[in-house]
């Protein structure tokens, strides 16, 4: 199945991606524990803590945005692959390069917007935990910056076949 010609991210980006995946795994564990905590605390009132719902919600947000770059780098985002059947050879390489360029621009715009949000809400904090929201907006800033870098790299390797993504093998 996999051939030596298939492109994989260079080592520094793989290490970065592995760190992103670790953050996502921690966020997933927090979601599980928090939601379970909410159930248990209803029967053991001493464990009642109003922060659990919010903690779970923000963990899902962290999980989503921190993985943006990882999924771009590993070809793991959900995308529509009609063009794979229509464009072959050089034409397909050009499509992939253009696609990566658009992906990079969109990620860069979102990173720029996340930066604006950090500036716009210096005093707003979350209702239950009181976490300043600007801290939470640094997660999409980091995720979309990572995505922009990954997509930019992919413009230049558009000619190489992609290694197919298998979530079960995610590292």
């Amino acid at each position: 199945m996999s051939t030596s010609d298939e492109w994989r991210e260079p080592a520094p980006l793989r290490a970065w991606g592995s760190a992103e995946l670790w953050v996502a795994v921690v966020a997933l564990v927090v979601i599980f524990v928090s939601v379970l905590w909410q159930v248990i605390s209803r029967f053991v009132p001493a464990l009642n803590w109003p922060g659990v719902g919010e903690l779970a919600g923000y963990s899902l947000i962290v999980l989503t945005f921190v993985m943006v770059g990882y999924l771009i780098g590993n070809n793991g985002h959900i995308m529509i692959q009609i063009i794979d059947y229509l464009a072959k050879g050089v034409a397909f390489t050009i499509v992939k390069a253009v696609s990566a360029a658009f992906t990079a621009v969109i990620c860069a715009l979102l990173a720029w917007e996340a930066y604006h949000l950090i500036l716009m809400y210096p005093d707003r904090s979350s209702a239950a935990l009181g976490v300043p929201l600007w801290i939470l907006y640094t997660v999409p800033l980091a995720g979309f910056t990572s995505g922009a870098v990954r997509a930019t790299v992919r413009i230049f390797v558009a000619g190489r076949p992609d290694a197919p993504f298998d979530a079960a093998e995610a590292r």
Binding site: R42, P50, E54, A127, A128, G130
Partner: peptide
């Protein structure tokens, strides 16, 4: 009774 309140510090 278990009473549902909105999950914000003031309501709790």
């Amino acid at each position: 009774l278990k009473i549902r309140f909105p999950n914000t510090p003031q309501f709790l």
